[in-house]
Design a protein around this nucleic acid. Structure first.
Lengths: 206, 206
DNA sequence: TGACAATTGACAGTGGGTGTCAAACGACTA
DNA sequence: TAGTCGTTTGACACCCACTGTCAATTGTCA
């Protein structure tokens, strides 16, 4: 009679985790060598010592192996944003949520940059990034509408604000990636959100 | 000796055009009947009376047959935005460009709505829409930077403004589609851009 | 240890997409 | 009007992403 639940996942769970990790590792290594399009799922599987069929049991598509942690991330983002604090403005609440996320990016800088290089060179991967962002927009829009008590079917602004804030986040992250992880995310994010908050035509833009 | 250039395309060009049109028509008909994923390229080709191979000579992927006119559209958008008038604010210039585009949508309402229904039900098509928008963002960012004489590598704002404006356009178009083409695009676009222009935290949002 | 459930490998099949080559066809010329 | 040239097309073979199925393996729990 070993540990009953949750703690110490058990051999079966650990093996699954290992297989998954080996697949991700093999995929990144091969992609880095030859590029996404010149590596087949069968090769990744072979390098990880499992059958091709098993690869597709772990990842629905070849693209997905590049984003092994995105589902968890999404869960955390959802949680972070679902209950925006009422003692802060919406923008300020979103800014803090985005900062939490961007710090995670900085913590796994090498992975993020390797991924970014692959994505840049591979259209079908860019697609996935955009789809993930779409989901963020939905989460953000729901959160904003809830926080402000607006009906998202009536009022354009929750969706609009969400789309705009996520677009700003993307612009900042793109710049961070182009800087090789050197740029200061927090500062750029602040700048961007201040700019948005004060109006696009403001400052010396015109 | 017939007409030399450009006018009266000649039989060969006309046949190509016809084949292309037949493929698009066949594809939309079959997709409407059974959904994108349950129609093979071979079936589309058969219905248009050409070989499967020929289908792929006209469209690089099965997805692309849904967006037969998007390349032209992109050309026009580029042109529209490349030289933003200097006697208007950037936002106002972009607003007019977007209105021109949205009017094209209204003019081909049925096509757009049919397409929207397919896209909504088919993730691999959503992908394409997002990619097209990415290209718009690039065009817009370049145009804004040029209009304001800013260095897009130094200043975040051109890219940010572009991303944000395109995001707003998408939000408006989504709403238009959800309204079944009934909503007033111009009005929504005005509202959205006024909102953006005056700052996200403005009005009674907080 | 033995029964049960989850994981895996092997195999066969569908469908998207590409390379190649020869046949068919439109365009132009003598 | 026939003949030549370049383009378009169909046929065939092929690769790879992805799925359904089923039997064999392996972890779990009693």
């Amino acid at each position: 009679m070993t540990t009953p639940t949750a703690l110490e996942p058990g051999l079966r769970e650990r093996k699954k985790r290992q297989t998954r990790d080996r697949l991700v590792e093999a995929a990144f290594a091969l992609f880095a060598e030859r590029g996404f399009d010149h590596v087949s799922a069968a090769e990744i599987a072979a390098r990880a010592d499992v059958s091709e069929r098993t690869f597709f049991r772990y990842f629905p598509t070849k693209e997905d192996v590049i984003f092994p942690d995105t589902e968890e991330m999404r869960g955390r983002v959802d949680e972070l944003v679902a209950n925006l604090p009422t003692d802060l403005s919406v923008i300020e609440g979103l800014r803090r949520a985005l900062q939490t996320i961007s710090h995670e990016f900085e913590d796994s800088k090498e992975l993020q940059l390797a991924r970014a290089r692959l994505v840049e060179a591979t259209p079908s991967l860019q697609t996935l990034v955009l789809q993930h962002e779409e989901k963020w927009v939905e989460s953000f829009a729901d959160a904003i509408a809830a926080r402000l008590g607006l009906d998202p079917d009536e009022d354009l602004r929750p969706e609009l604000t969400a789309a705009v804030v996520v677009a700003a986040f993307r612009a900042v992250m793109n710049r961070w990636i182009r800087s090789g992880g050197e740029a200061d995310i927090d500062q750029m994010l602040d700048q961007a959100l201040v700019f948005l908050g004060s109006g696009l035509g403001s400052s010396d833009l015109d």
